[in-house]
Design a protein around this nucleic acid. Sequence first.
DNA 1: TCCGTACTTGACACAGTGTCAATTGACACA
DNA 2: TGTGTCAATTGACACTGTGTCAAGTACGGA
Lengths: 193, 193
Amino acid sequence: MSSDVETRTRILEAAVRLLEAQRGRSVRMGDIARAAGLSRQAVYLHFASRAELLAATTLYVDKRLGLEQRLAPSRAAGSGTGRLDAYIEFWGNYLPEIYGVARALLDAQANDAAAAAAWNERMQAMRDGCRAAIAALESDGRLAKRWSTEEATDFLWTMLSVRNWEQLTQACGWSTGQYIRRMQAVARRTFQE
Amino acid sequence: MSSDVETRTRILEAAVRLLEAQRGRSVRMGDIARAAGLSRQAVYLHFASRAELLAATTLYVDKRLGLEQRLAPSRAAGSGTGRLDAYIEFWGNYLPEIYGVARALLDAQANDAAAAAAWNERMQAMRDGCRAAIAALESDGRLAKRWSTEEATDFLWTMLSVRNWEQLTQACGWSTGQYIRRMQAVARRTFQE
DNA sequence: TCCGTACTTGACACAGTGTCAATTGACACA
DNA sequence: TGTGTCAATTGACACTGTGTCAAGTACGGA
């Protein structure tokens, strides 16, 4: 019975390994099965579909990397500005570690409605983090008047999207540090007054 | 012999019509063929692959919508700030008109390397527009010192991506006018000194 | 009348996902 | 010793959509 859980974990480990190695591209169900030392059909005994496996993999990665602890500094920040900075720093450091898995789920969206739904759910959670940072700035009275909370959240959320991170770090060659510092600078200049 | 060209155009028209109607989603080669009053195989007589058809469709749309004329105001702007504003205004008004086609090419990227290449080419052209606006700002001596031309181009280009436009207008509900005004405001505040 | 061109029809290969049925091997319980 | 159950295996198959191939048709021009 616990072998049930162990096998599931084995599949998730294999999925993470392959997805990170291939940056999320062209990893098939059969590849993951083979890497986990199972038949392809056995994977379907644990996950109903590729979308479900990918979604479970993102959750597994979040747990393994300690998402909650990593969010602590941002949540604990004393000021709105500090919270915004800490959130961007967290995000800029976190993204490279989940990129392969995120990329796979992102690619699956085009064909697979379930994958799109799973991705949206994750991004809504990330949006909540953005909103919290903006709300902290506002309660300090430092959110620039031109922005409402929702609109500022919209913009910050969009600016911090995985696609944008990908474009800046992969296509434009920004380092993690450059990404973080520049995003922090733009966010401060954009939202803060 | 000119029927050759006419048929090609007929296919492109059908592709545009379907892609705009369905916002780029689930439009197959057979659908386009049927809409053009042809067999699926006839389409392959004019376009070697789906990626090639989609790429040709984007060029066709650019021509039909008068891309060059639309870019004129930005190119003619007297100041760097004016050029930046005009470019963002052009882009914000242009995107809704090409969204369906762009979306299809975007989705095709996941599976199709040729589609990815075609998309990248289009985006590099758009990047040149961003660079020109930044360069104009710089030659006015008004590009904020923290930014180099390339890095400012990177960021403006990313900020104006189709995905970002999609997220802000579709997911967040921003109107075209809101998109343009806010992007202009952020761009000015971010790059200008 | 013959030729070339544009197009049609229908069949097929190929990937990858997801489904189904029959079977095996291990372990537990009685 | 037999029975039930559970995880997993093997192999076959349906489905979708792209792209290929071959044979045939319809039409217009020299």
